[in-house]
């Protein structure tokens, strides 16, 4: 760590500004724990500093960063083994989710739909949730997701589809439960 140059630290600050929000969202979506997610974001940037020599500049930086993020999350998961946060303990986090152009009724309906969708996402098995976060929230290319998850591009596409199917099933189950 003593060999880190001032220039490299300045670069790390640029990377932090560019990526810390999306990394935070990734960790919160996976773990549903804000405090833990903030620790993990911090952890990722200092791992980047430590492992900077292993980055291949011909590959996408985001793919490499999320590989580190996954690793950090797994390491932390091992430390926290046994601590499972129930869905009821997870505080809902929405401000105003509806889109601006909707009228008041659509607005309310959309808000409810999104709340339900968020709950469904939280109930999705972790691997399925992760692939949707990477493909939909982080808008990573399939090639990058394949590198992050260490699988083929074709496999990523199939897994995104399966995750969407599973999400749909949970979503409709929640909707039914609400209606009854």
């Amino acid at each position: 760590m003593a060999q880190v140059s001032a220039g490299e630290l300045a670069k790390l600050a640029v990377l932090f500004e560019r990526h810390h929000r999306s990394l935070f969202r990734y960790f919160v979506s996976l773990n549903r724990d804000r405090e833990l997610s903030e620790d993990l974001v911090q952890d990722v940037f200092f791992r980047i500093l430590r492992y900077r020599a292993s980055y291949d500049p011909s590959k996408a930086f985001a793919a490499w960063m999320y590989q580190i993020a996954r690793r950090a999350n797994m390491d932390r998961g091992r430390e926290r083994r046994g601590e499972v946060v129930g869905i009821e303990e997870f505080t809902t986090r929405h401000g105003d989710p509806a889109s601006a152009e909707a009228g008041p009724e659509e607005h309310a309906a959309m808000g409810q739909n999104l709340e339900l969708l968020d709950r469904a996402l939280a109930l999705l098995p972790k691997d399925k949730r992760e692939i949707l976060i990477l493909s939909r929230f982080q808008e990573l290319k399939y090639e990058d997701i394949a590198a992050i998850l260490d699988c083929e591009v074709g496999t990523v596409k199939v897994r995104v589809y399966r995750a969407m199917r599973a999400l749909e099933q949970i979503y409709f189950a929640l909707e039914k439960e609400k209606a009854s």
């Binding site: 810390h20 929000r21 935070f24 969202r25 919160v28 979506s29 804000r34 997610s37 903030e38 974001v41 986090r93 929405h94 401000g95 105003d96 989710p97 889109s99 959309m110 739909n113 999104l114 969708l117 968020d118 996402l121 949707l132 939909r136 929230f137 969407m164």
Partner: peptide
């Protein structure tokens, strides 16, 4: 799929 993109992002 469209609604997923509308979910509000958690801000640190």
């Amino acid at each position: 799929w469209r609604n997923l993109a509308l979910l509000p992002a958690d801000e640190p």
